[in-house]
Write a protein that binds this DNA or RNA. Structure first.
Length: 578
DNA sequence: GCCGTTTTCGGCCCGACTGTTTTCAGTCG
């Protein structure tokens, strides 16, 4: 979403990752390789435009974690020239196409290099031909099984390419975790990994089970009815693919190690390494089996004990991305994260009056049952034809129905709203006189998503400066795995939102989750306030709020940063102050 | 290549499983 002057953060990160891949093929120092990967991650996850920084204050690049003098210089090179000479040199020297082979599960740098050098394999297609004609298994270090596996991986649909929406993975993972709690001798079982850190997508599921009887638990796991194939199994570990295509890794540990294991398998990898490094500095060894001083285990049953061993308070999983949470924990400045129970209402809800599947009355009733104090009904405007948008008279009729409904309701209020389409030039799809009649006006992008960044930024800013506008909904308009975010200067939009008092939304639809974690964090840093809304098109979707709250938590968002954690009177005061 | 309540040099997280060997390297998480 952040389209800075010139090179995007993602492009710098891509080049560093490419360098790391190339270095792996040359068997370079593994820590040097890691340095490039760390820097790639830092750049990618920075909410700021690294390119702008490189041009305006290159010295400050060295303050980024994992970026020293050398990599700072290389960032400047990339930003100035669009490429990195070092990478070009590496690519010229390396066997062509070898990095492509690294994408095949089971092929690492060592095997890729051998394949490229001995068999002159230059692509996945070439690898397939080599394996089919039986040339692979004759290589030293390879065998029949490796050759067979390569063919299987190449034949498999690109399942591993795609990451699963977390909400969708939950539909498989939650029942499986429940099933595993019935395994022999099992005291605890839960999903760890990126699922527990509430990442918007997950590559696979990591399932953790506490039991003394590993083999019995593994047996129970493999007997799960929805297992499509077993990819690995031992006495404490197993890996399967479910019939839906989702991969699941199982780990079984004794109860006294469960907390340490939960911490380790929750990750992130970078966070775990940071904690283990702290342990090392304190003369401890931290592994998934516990915290050890010498050979004596001093902690590990509870996750909290691992943090205590290195002098830190427990850190919520959503923050464990090595994005400053360890420093914040040490300083006692961890955020007081927003929680689902803090939410008082939902500010984006659709009805059958436009593209919703339930009526105004049904949506209001369902929201009341969730314990909410208010919702905003925000149907579409005319230009969004596919959604059957309402015109002026349509909204007038809806407002009258809301008035009469509100008169009958007790302790619950329906706010009159609209999700107003922003035209390509930044004008809105309803005139000001009409906009003035609503309690809350949302604006959002539905078309012209591919405008050049500068024009997109201007379009958005023009819309946000309209004094009738309260909220910018699903700002980037991305759809995870389907549609790229619109490119614009997020910092500038956040600054305008902050100064105008326009709220920015974290949309809770599982494939939107927009703003994302990094965007939300940046928005709050720049002084903007947020809402978390479901954009529900049915009564069931009102329950999507949990996904939005999870995303907010990943963005270090506090309760006070989210205006729909406030009771109705305070919310109305905030909207009217606009 | 980065980094510093052991340090500006010498470290850099830790373990399970697989396949191919025959005591272990490679890969993965």
């Amino acid at each position: 979403m952040i389209a800075p002057s010139g090179t995007a953060n993602a492009e710098i990160a891509r080049i560093f990752r490419e360098v790391a891949d190339q270095l792996e093929l040359t068997r370079a120092n593994q820590f040097r390789i890691r340095a490039y990967r760390n820097a790639a991650r830092t750049v990618e996850e920075s909410g700021r435009s690294i390119a702008s920084l490189a041009l305006s204050a290159p010295k400050e690049l060295e303050e980024l974690p994992g970026v020293g003098a050398d990599l700072a210089r290389k960032i400047v090179q990339i930003v100035r020239t669009g490429s990195l000479p070092m990478l070009t040199t590496l690519e010229r020297r390396a066997p062509k196409g070898a990095t492509e082979l690294l994408r095949v599960p089971g092929i690492g740098p060592r095997k890729a290099r051998v394949l490229a050098q001995r068999l002159h394999v230059r692509s996945l297609g070439g690898l397939k031909r080599a394996a089919r004609t039986g040339r692979v298994h004759k290589l030293r270090g390879f065998g029949a099984k490796t050759e067979k596996r390569i063919l299987e991986e190449l034949a498999a649909p690109a399942v591993t390419e795609r990451r699963w929406l977390r909400a969708r993975a939950a539909q498989y993972g939650d029942p499986l975790a429940a099933y595993m709690r019935d395994a022999p001798g099992t005291t605890r079982a839960e999903l760890a990994g990126s699922f527990r850190r509430c990442r918007e997508t997950v590559g696979d599921l990591d399932l953790l089970v506490a039991s003394e009887d590993g083999p019995a638990v593994v047996q129970h796991f493999l007997a799960y009815p929805q297992v499509r194939r077993v990819t690995a199994h031992g006495t404490t570990r197993a890996a399967i693919q479910l019939t839906g295509g989702l991969n699941v890794d199982l780990r079984v540990l004794p109860p006294e190690s469960y907390g340490a294991a939960l911490h380790y398998f929750t990750g992130s990898k970078a966070h775990s390494i940071a904690i283990r490094t702290l342990g090392r500095a304190a003369g401890l060894k931290i592994s998934e089996y516990g915290v050890y001083r010498g050979t004596k285990r001093i902690a590990g049953r509870e996750e909290r004990e691992v943090f205590e061993a290195v002098g830190l308070p427990w850190i919520p999983p959503e923050l464990r991305e090595a994005r400053g949470e360890i420093d914040a924990a040490r300083a006692g400045t961890l955020p007081k994260l927003v929680e689902l129970r803090h939410i008082h209402g939902d500010l984006q809800v659709h009805t059958t009056d436009s593209d919703g599947r339930n009526t105004l009355e049904e949506m209001a009733e369902a929201a009341q049952e969730l314990g909410y104090e208010y919702i905003a009904v925000t149907d579409h405007t005319p230009t969004v034809r596919i959604a059957g948008g309402l015109d002026r008279s349509g909204f007038r009729r809806q407002m009258r129905r809301i008035d009469s409904l509100n008169a009958r309701l007790h302790g619950f209020t329906i706010l009159k709203g609209a999700e107003v389409d922003v035209h390509a030039d930044g004008t809105l799809d309803l005139n000001d006189a009409t906009l003035a009649k609503f309690d809350i006006v949302l604006v959002s992008l539905h078309s012209s998503l591919a405008l050049p960044p500068a024009r997109q930024t201007q379009r958005i800013i023009r819309a946000l400066r309209n004094p009738h506008v309260h909220l910018f909904a699903h700002p980037s308009a991305r759809l995870i795995n389907k549609r790229q975010p619109a490119r614009f200067d997020l910092d500038e939009v956040c600054r305008v939102a902050a100064s105008e008092g326009v709220l920015l939304e974290i949309n809770a639809q599982p494939e939107r989750l927009d703003l994302d974690d990094i965007g939300s964090r940046r928005a709050v840093e720049l002084g903007a306030s947020l809402t978390i809304d479901t954009d529900a098109h049915s009564v069931e979707e009102l329950r999507f709020m949990r996904w939005g709250v999870d995303q907010a938590r990943r963005g270090w968002v506090n309760r006070r940063d989210v205006v729909n954690t406030q009771p109705l009177d305070k919310l109305l005061a905030r909207l009217r102050a606009r």
